[in-house]
Design a protein around this nucleic acid. Structure first.
Lengths: 241, 241
DNA sequence: CGGAGTTTGTGACCACGAGAACAAACTCGC
DNA sequence: GCGAGTTTGTTCTCGTGGTCACAAACTCCG
């Protein structure tokens, strides 16, 4: 799915300009960044890996290993400087400058996304809201005017948009994705419950609400089944030996 | 080798109650179920692992391996019966009956979730919307009246709710989670950008919109960096112009 | 200045998951 | 009835990721 191109394979030292950071680590870096921001807001200037790990909800060893992929930004015996580490993570992720984002599909979910403050506060700027429906045209959502879907290519080119959000019904999702790729967008965040087919080089991340609920339901079912069987044994997490 | 696989030659009788299905497989089962539903809507009665795999966007070998954890529900040389396999997956996940769900936090996102048809169509039934804000009380969203947060325990007990959705601001998320656990909820879907602390036995799944965007931004940054360096080699990222 | 205490960075090890390859089992045509 | 073709179920192998444990390095204090 994700097009991981040529592995440069050189060195694997900690200070290389292009290191291959594991995908699992990349997924956690934003969590660390948020925890660091929270610490900074409380005027905490430095912290240990243990403190930061608990704030982020992970193991301290895992956190240290994750940070070591970025370089050696801590001081042994002391810990990490909050501001310095924040900047280094932000720089690594690439959120030191703002990313223009376009949202296609201004239904209930699209409107919620447009109003979501977490986007703008985290290095993302919603530059346009698009919808194909006639009755949506001209309406103002979150301070932006809803524009016709046909304007996609023009806006993407004018605003240098590389990230697109899809919040349309599943039946339209593939068409929107195709148009986005055609317009030059190379990263898509897909909220539609559909499998998107995109050419290599385009990254797609999927957020699927009903799948998340079904995963929870599976675990609930197992909990209920185990509770029924082992009524005298109250350990829910018991691993069958 | 803990896989208990080849036994239980009997058909749809009492099956092995605890199979340990890998977490990665559990996360894909809803995708397969959706693909099967789509096939059924097109009146396709049976399919091969290859067809189902492409419809679900995965490898066929991985799909067969995933399905093998549930049992042997296919026929060699033929494929899978769509309806039969659908039922088996739904039964394994536990969505053959409806799960009552409660949503706390009826802001923009909470309203979108309440209106989201994917919940109700997939074995989930939103039984109550809760919000602590005074001005939300009595308003009707998606056909349900918004009720005060203080009613949480009462509703959970009355409706046998075991799944809760949190769509409140980050600062309130932990309090809501605590109240949910206290009320008896054992699975939480958290949309708030905060790390939740819950006792063992309670499952939490996190959907974090800004983290998803940041992961995309990281890959975008790398793409841009690589494009800058290897200007002469444009083969890997070729976008059809 | 040196030792004790503390914390980071990393090497080693183990578990899980992805993918390829192959045997088992079923259907179809003759 | 039987061989050819097809498709599932399973085994094997390899890469990725998580955890532990410890050396390296820094501070503090006498």
């Amino acid at each position: 799915m994700t097009a991981r191109s040529t592995n440069t394979g050189e060195g694997s030292g900690a200070q290389d300009p292009h290191r291959d950071i594991p995908e699992a680590t990349v997924a956690r870096l934003p969590v660390y960044l948020r925890a660091l921001t929270s610490l900074a807001e409380r005027n905490i200037a430095s912290c240990s890996s243990e403190e930061l790990a608990t704030a982020a909800g992970v193991n301290s060893a895992k956190l240290r290993k994750d940070l070591s992929y970025l370089g050696s930004y801590g001081t042994r015996g002391v810990g990490y400087d909050v501001d310095y580490l924040s900047y280094q993570i932000a720089r690594e992720i690439g959120v030191t400058h703002d990313w223009p984002v376009i949202i296609v599909g201004i239904g209930n979910l699209g409107q919620a996304l447009a109003n979501f403050s977490g986007f703008s506060s985290r290095g993302f700027r919603t530059v346009a809201l698009l919808d194909a429906a006639e009755q949506m045209q001209g309406r103002t959502v979150a301070g932006l005017e809803v524009r016709p879907f046909a304007d996609l290519a023009e806006i993407v080119a004018a605003e240098q948009v590389s990230i697109g959000v899809i919040s349309v019904p599943a039946t339209a999702a593939q068409d929107v994705a195709d148009a986005m790729v055609e317009a030059g967008i190379s990263s898509i965040l897909n909220f539609a419950p559909a499998v998107l087919n995109v050419p290599p080089g385009v990254d797609v991340r999927k957020v699927d609400l009903s799948i998340e609920l079904q995963i929870l339901a599976y675990h609930e079912s197992r909990k209920a089944a185990e509770a029924d069987e082992t009524v005298d044994n109250g350990s829910e997490e018991g691993i069958t030996a």
